[in-house]
Design a protein around this nucleic acid. Structure first.
Lengths: 221, 221
DNA sequence: AGGAAATTGTGAAATAATGCACATGAATGG
DNA sequence: CCATTCATGTGCATTATTTCACAATTTCCT
């Protein structure tokens, strides 16, 4: 295959997903894994794993399986996570701090190089990771100077849209938004929303149905 | 319709999604909204909105639209978010604290009533919200005593699976897992995984393609 | 060497989700 | 009171995604 025959978004999501157990196996596991095993670890269908990978090339050997190290390298190359990415964050509350200090991000090459807030009392604060909080007004200047492409929004909902606009105007190309609101940007800009409450509401829906009898979901997400 | 003709999971996700702008409009907006308008606010198709709602009843009036207040009430009833839910959390790091203190959760009726950690140095700490951190060993006792149904995991990846087992055994029926690993539970238990890095990796994938020319996604997520 | 076992890659079938397009009912205005 | 406008609810076509099932390829064993 290998042709760009319209790759489903869900395939991309799963690729990132596959890489988690692979990373773990890299340390103390066999050097080879079958689609069956990997699928089991990720709770998906084996054919799905093979098809997802087949969109991008032939990484396995028939009758054998996939070499874990090589497969992981390929996945990272596909996703674009085989290099460092610099991020900035706007909104230094509890959530903001927990993200900036997050070990998983750093481990995967996502490094925060700037932190902003609109609250004058927070500006100038030195965060544990070493960053100093700057005022929102500097976003444009800093983003351009450091050539930051990805912005993370952890402001309250009411500020999120305004901040998205500022980021976009500053040249940011992708936004990871944690505010519980659908933000829009004028310029060509990729937006990914993460809303914890939505996930929780999903859980609650299925939970209620669980008590009332039949299961409403096929498998664990 | 109204019959339980296999409701797509995505419909449930969108219902929670629809409720965000509706909540905002409740304060200072018109009393009525059309599927067209709501769809616009959420970045989806209008027929989609109508169909999603139609799974659960006829909430609109032809030629008129949907009464916002009533619609929101219905959505909340459907999702099961028209009542309070008590949660417990395991893993009191930066992320854990930011969730416990999160205003959005409280506003929507999700209340943390217990916090656990395995680190003896954290046990006994009083969190800003008033909760005192208890030792992981007490999970079973406390969960049963307070009849907690939902657990949130914010431990490091290596501890997540173990904690999921403990929670499940304690009688927890739903788990919101923030650790970057796919957790399993022996008992019938609903699991929802939230992995920030996966979202970021998605963003990066599309970002790389953005530079290379054609757009790989149809619309903003 | 040759057959059995394992496991990939993939066409085709099955399943699921989305969007169109229109009949239907409500409001409005002359 | 009828015509016009608006917007819902929904059957149906379309599009997208998942799963099956099997030919192709490799390894292993005798």
């Amino acid at each position: 295959m290998t042709k760009d025959s319209k790759i489903p978004n869900s395939t991309i999501e799963r690729l990132a997903f596959y890489s988690r157990p692979l990373e773990a196996l890299l340390k103390d596991g066999p050097p080879i894994i079958s689609s069956e095993k990997l699928a089991g670890l990720c709770g998906v269908n084996a054919a799905q794993v093979r098809k997802d990978l087949a969109y991008f090339g032939e990484f396995g050997v028939r009758g054998v399986g996939y070499e874990i190290k090589a497969l992981l390298r390929e996945i990272k190359r596909i996703l674009g996570t085989d290099r460092k990415w610099t991020l900035c964050i706007v909104g230094i509350g509890n959530l903001g701090i927990s993200l900036v200090e997050n070990e998983n991000f750093r481990k995967r090459g996502y490094v925060f190089v700037a932190a902003f807030d609109s609250d004058a009392r927070k500006v100038g604060t030195r965060l544990p990771c070493g960053l100093t909080v700057e005022h929102e007004g500097n976003i444009g200047k800093v983003v351009k100077a450091l050539e930051i492409k990805i912005g993370v929004i952890t402001t309250p909902a009411r500020a999120a849209q305004r901040v998205a606009g500022i980021l976009s105007k500053a040249g940011i190309k992708a936004i990871l938004n944690f505010a519980p609101i659908q933000v829009r940007t004028p310029e060509r800009c990729i937006i990914e929303n993460v809303d914890f409450s939505v996930r929780l509401e999903n859980l609650v829906y299925h939970l209620e149905r669980l008590y009332k009898g039949e299961n409403t979901r096929k498998k664990q997400t």
